[in-house]
């Protein structure tokens, strides 16, 4: 008799086969684009014959060259796009976490009503279609005609990132007992001091995960930035889009691999930090 369970072991017959095949298709669909980019970025040929007949790093070289010959292209240069991408992501990361730490504290410690209302408010950007966020912010920015600079991208990204950061901070906050905090206070720490000495250090896993989430989301953001970017304020994804709108350029593939690697490292870091303790969604 085979082991009974969600997925039976040996001897599951057609059931097991169907489940495994479908799951396999799912994995392939999820991973195919990344894998193919990775392989093809090492191809020496101009065509997409597969597997690549010859391997080389020529596309990586030309991607590097893109950074060197900044002035060659008429639009914003790739170096500038990368720098502004990083700037936006860093500002978004720091601001969102700074705002979410006290908020998470207030929501976890506060009355249920306060918590429910605020949670709803701060999940709103998640439910809101990205296109609409893009259009809404564009409408606002165009009507106000303020010179926002970097903030033109930072402000919409913040709204997008806050739900994720808040969730991570809150799940970390929930595991901190009120008594731990009160213990510090009973020993003579002021409430603020207890927050700094006790709450923030104990929230660290959530804060780290939040920081990384904020970075990943902002760094990869495409749709909202697609509406909001200007010639001066653009990001790497937009630069790549404008470059490849007509045809695929293998050097952008090399660039993509670079971005994929950054993302992978970050995902693995998050996975390590919150291993099994919090949910991602």
């Amino acid at each position: 008799m085979s082991r009974v369970g969600l997925l039976p072991g040996e001897g599951g017959g057609s059931y097991r086969l169907v489940v495994c095949v479908l799951a396999g298709i799912g994995i392939v669909i999820a991973a195919a684009p990344v894998v193919i980019i990775f392989i093809m970025s090492f191809s020496a040929a101009e065509t997409s014959s597969f597997p690549p007949s010859e391997l080389s790093l020529r596309w990586y070289e030309s991607a590097l060259a893109l950074f060197r010959s900044d002035e060659s292209s008429g639009s914003q240069a790739v170096g500038a796009a990368l720098i502004s991408s990083l700037q936006v992501a860093l500002v978004v990361m720091v601001l969102s976490v700074t705002a979410c730490i006290p908020l998470a504290y207030a929501l976890v410690r506060g009355r249920r009503r306060l918590r429910q209302g605020m949670e709803l408010l701060f999940t709103l950007p998640l439910v809101f279609p990205l296109v609409m966020l893009g259009i809404a912010f564009l409408l606002l920015a165009e009507s106000l005609r303020w010179e926002l600079g970097l903030w033109r991208l930072v402000i919409p990204h913040l709204a997008l990132v806050v739900p994720f950061v808040l969730r991570n901070c809150m799940s970390a906050m929930q595991s901190i007992s009120r008594e731990t905090e009160e213990a510090a206070i009973s020993l003579g720490a002021s409430p603020l001091r207890a927050g700094i000495d006790i709450v923030v250090p104990l929230m660290k896993p959530g804060i780290l995960a939040g920081l990384i989430f904020a970075f990943i989301i902002s760094f990869n953001e495409f749709t909202i930035t697609f509406f909001m970017y200007t010639i001066d304020q653009s990001t790497l994804p937009i630069w790549m889009y404008s470059r490849t709108v007509s045809s695929l350029d293998p050097s952008t593939l090399a660039l993509s691999v670079f971005i994929i690697l950054i993302d992978l490292v970050m995902i693995i870091a998050i996975d390590k930090i919150i291993a099994g303790r919090a949910s991602l969604f």
Binding site: S177, T180, A183, I198
Partner: peptide, 20 residues
Amino acid sequence: VPPHKRDFGMVFQSLALFPH
């Protein structure tokens, strides 16, 4: 008087040792 100025020592049910 706020609790941090009362100068009392307290042992909590969960003990509330600082884990870090």
